[in-house]
Amino acid sequence: MHAVEGFVSTPWVFVALFGIAMLDGFFPVVPSETLVITLGVFAASGEPSLPLVMLVAALGAFCGDHVSYLIGRKSGDRIFARLKEGSRARRAYDRVGRMLAERGGLVLVVARYIPGGRTAATLTTGATGYPRRLFTRYDAVAAVSWAVYSSLLGYAGGAAFEESPLRGVALGLGLAFTVTLLHEGVRALRLRRRPGAPT
């Protein structure tokens, strides 16, 4: 525990945060939310700086999303060709493509809060030729709001358990998990209520 507290008070923690938040944009197995929430917890006791956590997380997410967008722009056709018809990944990409056509930038903002969904959204956005100027505008909103939300979630847990940071981390992650479950539950209900939806 003391080693962790020592690390979060060094500048290296921001290098790690930027790298992980960036990687998560195009390599979705990297748990960037976990790190941002954890640093938010420790920020409640003074180190690291909460505004810096928000800023670095947002910059990393923004850069990673643009890497994913460029991958989609250059290799989108080859990526889609490898996805098996009817597979979960193919359904996700097809759904994101339809949503982009209907709602545009709103999809980019919402998808940033869905692990795995953000990569599907940014890759598909690039592959479908969505204008880079609009992508950059909406992605900036998505990255900043995500960084602020995740940091404050951790900060709330850290403030509640200032004497026990690990409990604060558990609370912050629990809140994030609950919000994700609620989001997915509401989405599933809305899909079920659509005309023609299977019963």
Rank of each mutant, 00 (worst) to 15 (best):
Y93W: 09
K84H: 11
E33T: 11
T119G: 03
S9P: 07
L166Y: 06
S49D: 13
F27A: 05
A156F: 13
L182P: 03
F27M: 12
G174H: 10
E47R: 14
V109F: 02
G157V: 13
L173V: 14
M1I: 14
G76E: 04
Y93V: 15
C63A: 15
T38S: 14
A81E: 13
T180I: 13
R88S: 12
A140Y: 07
R192D: 00
E85K: 14
T125Y: 02
A160L: 15
V29C: 06
R137C: 01
R91P: 02
Y113M: 06
A142P: 00
V148W: 08
R88F: 08
T178S: 14
A160N: 08
G72H: 05
P115R: 10
T10Q: 13
V148P: 06
R187Q: 09
R167H: 11
A160W: 09
E85L: 08
R190F: 11
F177Q: 02
E47W: 07
A159C: 11
G19K: 03
G19I: 13
S145Y: 01
A142I: 01
R137L: 15
R133E: 03
T10A: 09
F7Q: 11
E102K: 15
A43W: 10
V96A: 05
A21P: 00
W146H: 02
R137K: 12
L35A: 09
E5F: 11
G157D: 12
P28L: 12
T125V: 04
P11Y: 08
L181R: 07
A143H: 03
A159Q: 14
V109I: 15
R193S: 11
V13F: 03
P48G: 01
V56K: 04
G116Y: 08
A92D: 12
Y93H: 07
F26R: 11
Y149T: 14
P11D: 12
G64K: 09
H66L: 13
A140C: 10
A170S: 07
A143G: 03
G86I: 04
A156K: 09
R103L: 00
L134D: 02
V169N: 07
T180N: 10
P195Y: 05
A143K: 01
E47N: 12
I37K: 06
E163A: 15
A57E: 04
G126F: 02
A92E: 07
H66K: 09
V186L: 13
A188H: 04
F80I: 06
S9M: 11
G116L: 09
G25L: 06
D139A: 04
Y138Q: 02
Y130H: 01
I114D: 03
G185M: 06
Y113P: 04
A44C: 09
R73W: 12
F7N: 12
E33H: 10
A140R: 03
D24G: 15
W146R: 01
R88G: 03
S49G: 07
P31A: 10
A188Y: 08
Y93Q: 03
G174K: 05
V8A: 11
V53P: 07
Y138S: 05
R91G: 05
Y155I: 10
S32K: 04
V169L: 08
P198W: 00
G168P: 10
A89N: 09
V148C: 04
G174V: 09
W146V: 02
Y69T: 00
L189A: 12
R98C: 00
G105W: 02
R187F: 05
P195A: 13
